[in-house]
Structure formats: structure tokens, C-alpha cells
């Protein structure tokens, strides 16, 4: 078992289960901040699994979400992204401009924030799928710490704010209180930054933002500036973010969201002069482990040593589109026409849990993977939610699984780690961690 056959990986069952939401394992290493690399222009934050023992939010979860709930939320997230992509492509879903752009005669903030729902769809009550990883940032002067969802799939950073004029969901940490920060300021309606927002309004001269997700979740409030502390040695003065006074949706108990997309309001774009629009992340294999989120030139050094793939920017201003070209299973390139990947394109999204493939690509992957597993005699198991290729590994300590590699334009290759090939709901249900889109055009 110590020597897997060629093009196979050994999957340790012991390693798989700390990744489950029902884990009671302790944190491998407490989150810490540190400089790294040769360049001082790189700053590092710690990423932890939202439901793992390293998460500041973990203690708040009396009942961790089930695998079914996590996967259902992930399906909502994927559908939300499909919706945003498709509506942007057709023009139907272009960001709405608020009708409330009157200047000083605007109603009081409370009334504005309440009435703003007129331009928003009714909440379906479905989750955005807040992603499984969080980072902790400091906000204000003196800085208070907030645990926020880390999201490369959206732009505007926001936190729930005092006095929470309309409604806030329950969060683990105290609400951010602008009155306690000496560096807080609202962005004025006349400021160019206000126009950077996809959805904006005006109340009493103060810029209002709206962040609306495809599933009906949203945050509305004042667009503001304050000092954002990324680490103990690095802060961003005048960072523009949403001070949320009306926030609804299942955002877990996070204080808000850190937007890492490519739009004007995102953190990488706002800090372009400081970090050069460069950042990198690493997500830990186990929920008991820690990863990192780096900003700055040093974070790209390791990638430059390897092959990179072009970021395809013509498809829209927000998502990180890349060109997927193929899949290898057990070292063998699957026979999938290039058009299968090119038809709809591919994005990289830190907030989606399970990789979604065009139906034809998934079908080919599943067939090859299942054939390799059958050849080794592994017993199949019932599906788990959207995962349909599952195995019963009861009583096994290690399992040999075929390698899976995702190939991209320019020669970049993602040789998926064993922890990323399988999703373990239980020892008797360990599933191939990929799913198909409903339609080849999705």
C-alpha cells in the first residue's frame, strides 16, 4: 500500500475524515500571521475552513451543517453563478442602477435602505453558499477583528454594521461600529468611487451600495472608507467597503465577505498600487489545517516558476475565466473535444466547493474513473446529493485512486491532490468530488 501503482494516489481514510463537518478534531496549527518569501512586498493572511476547529466561527456552530446541506448550498452557489454569467451575456442581468440617486432631498437612511428592496428581487431564502473558507481581517481604528468569507467570485467587500438600521443576520463577532472608528468615513454620492458600484444609490449625500446575489441574498448599506488591516504589519488606509445596514441570506455567522474578484471595488483592484493586482491562496487539505491568502509580488513567484494559464477577461469584469483544455485520469488523456470546454468557458471560484464540468466532460471523467476503481475491485455506494460516483471504503485504511489532472491553455496543469479527488461523507460513502452542469451551454 505504500507504493501505489503508476498514476494512482493513496488516499488515507484517516486524513479524509477530519475534513468532514462533524469533526471534533483539534486544530493542527493555530492561525498565525507571518511574513514569508524573499520580498517584503508580500503580506500573508491565514485561511481556515469555516466549519473546522481552526475557525473563529466554529464554536458558534452548535450543529455543524450536514454534507447534504453543504452540497445543497454549493448547488445554489453554482446556479447563482450560472445565472450571473448567463444574464450578463444576454444583457438581461446587467447590474441595476438604483432609481434613488436624488441628492440632499433624499429620505433618511432608514427609509432609503428599506425602500431599496423595491429594486431587488424577493429573497428566495436560498443560500448564496458562503464558501467553506474564511479569513480574519481588522477594520477601523483601533482595529477590530472580523471573520469574513473569502470569495474570488465577487467584488465588493462588506461587513454588517451598527446600528443595523433594517436587519442583520446573526453573526459570531460584534457588529462593526463606525462610531468607534476614528478613521471611518462615508463615501459621498459625488465621489467617483460611488459610481464604481454595480448597484448604488444616494441618501443625504452619502453613497449607498447594494450587493445582490443571484439567489436573492443581498447586503445594502453605506459605501464607506476605513483602514483595513490584513496582518499585524500591513494595513490598507481608505479601503472602500460596504457598511451593511440591511443584510439577508444565509451567510453563516461570518461578519461579511471579502471580495477578491476583478471588478473596481475588489480588494486586489483597490490595492493595485500597493500589491500590483497580484494575490495567491492555498486551501488546506484538511479542515484542521490552515492555508494562506497572500497579496503582493512574492505570491506569484512560485507560479512563475511553473506554467501559468491566461486569464480570459473578455467574458466579463468579475470572474476569473481560464481556458480548460482537457482532463487526464490515471495518466490517460480523455477523449473530450475542445469544443466541450470552449462552449461555456471555465471559471476558478474559491467559493464553490465541487468542480462543475460540462456534461460531456463529466461523463467521460466518471466513466474513466469508475473503470479504474472497478479494476481494483472497489465496491460502489449510493449517491450523495449531487455526487453520483461513490464507493464504500468501510474497514479500509488506505485506498488507491487514479490520478486526476485538469489541463489548461498554456500548458498549466492542476494535478488534483488526493483530498480533492474524493469527497467523504462517511467511510461507506466516499464520492468522486466532481459534478456535471445541467446543460453543455451552462
Amino acid at each position: 500500500a505504500r507504493h501505489p501503482p503508476p498514476h494512482h494516489l493513496m488516499l488515507s481514510m484517516e486524513d479524509m475524515f477530519p475534513a468532514g463537518p462533524s469533526s471534533s478534531s483539534s486544530c493542527d496549527a493555530p492561525p498565525r500571521e507571518h511574513k514569508h518569501g524573499a520580498t517584503s512586498s508580500t503580506t500573508r493572511m491565514t485561511i481556515v475552513h469555516r466549519h473546522g476547529p481552526c475557525s473563529p466561527l466554529a464554536a458558534a456552530h452548535r450543529k455543524p451543517p450536514s454534507h447534504g446541506e453543504i452540497l445543497a448550498a454549493d448547488q445554489n452557489r453554482a446556479e447563482s453563478i450560472q445565472h450571473r454569467v448567463s444574464t450578463t451575456a444576454t444583457g438581461r442581468g446587467k447590474p441595476k442602477r438604483s432609481r434613488r440617486q436624488q441628492p440632499s432631498s433624499a429620505p433618511a437612511p432608514a427609509a432609503s435602505l428599506s425602500s431599496s428592496t423595491a429594486s431587488l428581487p424577493a429573497s428566495s431564502g436560498r443560500a448564496l453558499g458562503t464558501g467553506n473558507y474564511v479569513v480574519t481581517v481588522g477594520l477601523g481604528t483601533p482595529a477590530s477583528r472580523y471573520t469574513v468569507v473569502f470569495d474570488t467570485g465577487s467584488d465588493t467587500t462588506w461587513v454588517q454594521c451598527q446600528p443595523c438600521v433594517v436587519v442583520c443576520y446573526e453573526q459570531r463577532e460584534k457588529l462593526f461600529d463606525p462610531a468607534r472608528s476614528s478613521t471611518y468615513a462615508n463615501v459621498s454620492c459625488a465621489a467617483p468611487a460611488c459610481s464604481d458600484l454595480n448597484i448604488h444609490g444616494c441618501s443625504g449625500g452619502h453613497c449607498l451600495y447594494g450587493v445582490q446575489y443571484g439567489d436573492g441574498s443581498y447586503s445594502i448599506g453605506f459605501f464607506a472608507m476605513d483602514t483595513l488591516t490584513l496582518s499585524s504589519y500591513d494595513a490598507v488606509k481608505g479601503f472602500r467597503f460596504g457598511c451593511g445596514e440591511r443584510n439577508e441570506g444565509l451567510f453563516g455567522e461570518a461578519a461579511g465577505l471579502l471580495g477578491l474578484g476583478r471588478g473596481k471595488t475588489s480588494l486586489p483592484v483597490q490595492t493595485y498600487d500597493k500589491y500590483g493586482g497580484v494575490f495567491a491562496h492555498c486551501l488546506p487539505a484538511r479542515s484542521t489545517g490552515t492555508g494562506y491568502l497572500d497579496f503582493g509580488a512574492g505570491s506569484l513567484a512560485a507560479a512563475r516558476a511553473r506554467l501559468t494559464t491566461p486569464m480570459l477577461t473578455e467574458n466579463g469584469p468579475t470572474f476569473y475565466y481560464v481556458g480548460m483544455t482537457g482532463i487526464r485520469v490515471g495518466g490517460q488523456l480523455l477523449s473530450i473535444p475542445q469544443s466541450v470546454f470552449a462552449t461555456a468557458g471555465t471559471i476558478v471560484d474559491s467559493g464553490t466547493v465541487i468542480t462543475r464540468l460540462p456534461p460531456a466532460a463529466y461523463s467521460s471523467l466518471r466513466y474513466a474513473f469508475a473503470a479504474a476503481m472497478a479494476a481494483r475491485g472497489y465496491k460502489k455506494a449510493p449517491a450523495v446529493s449531487l455526487l453520483d460516483t461513490c464507493y464504500d471504503f468501510t474497514g479500509m485504511s488506505q485506498v488507491a485512486i487514479p490520478t486526476v489532472s485538469l489541463l489548461f491553455q498554456g500548458g498549466a496543469r492542476l494535478d488534483v491532490d488526493a483530498s480533492g479527488i474524493m469527497y467523504a461523507a462517511s467511510a461507506s460513502q466516499v464520492c468522486l468530488a466532481f459534478a456535471a452542469n445541467e446543460d453543455g451551454g451552462d
Binding site: 491562496h281 476558478v348 464553490t352 462543475r356 489548461f408
Partner: peptide, 30 residues
């Protein structure tokens, strides 16, 4: 649209350079 999700990105360094318009993957980063 296809989506590369976070499960498949585990342990990989994923680097984004908005100016140069590239995405890089490097294994064993954490």
C-alpha cells in the same frame, strides 16, 4: 460555465495576476 471549485484546489497555490492576466497553479503550497 464550468467552475473549478475549492475542493480541487486544495494544497495547490493558486496565483492571480490581474495586470498580466494570468492564473498560475503550483502544487504542494500548503
Amino acid at each position: 460555465v464550468g467552475i473549478v471549485g475549492n475542493t480541487q484546489l486544495k494544497t495547490f497555490g493558486v496565483a492571480y495576476d490581474i495586470g498580466k492576466k494570468v492564473v498560475g497553479f503550483y502544487p504542494g503550497a500548503c
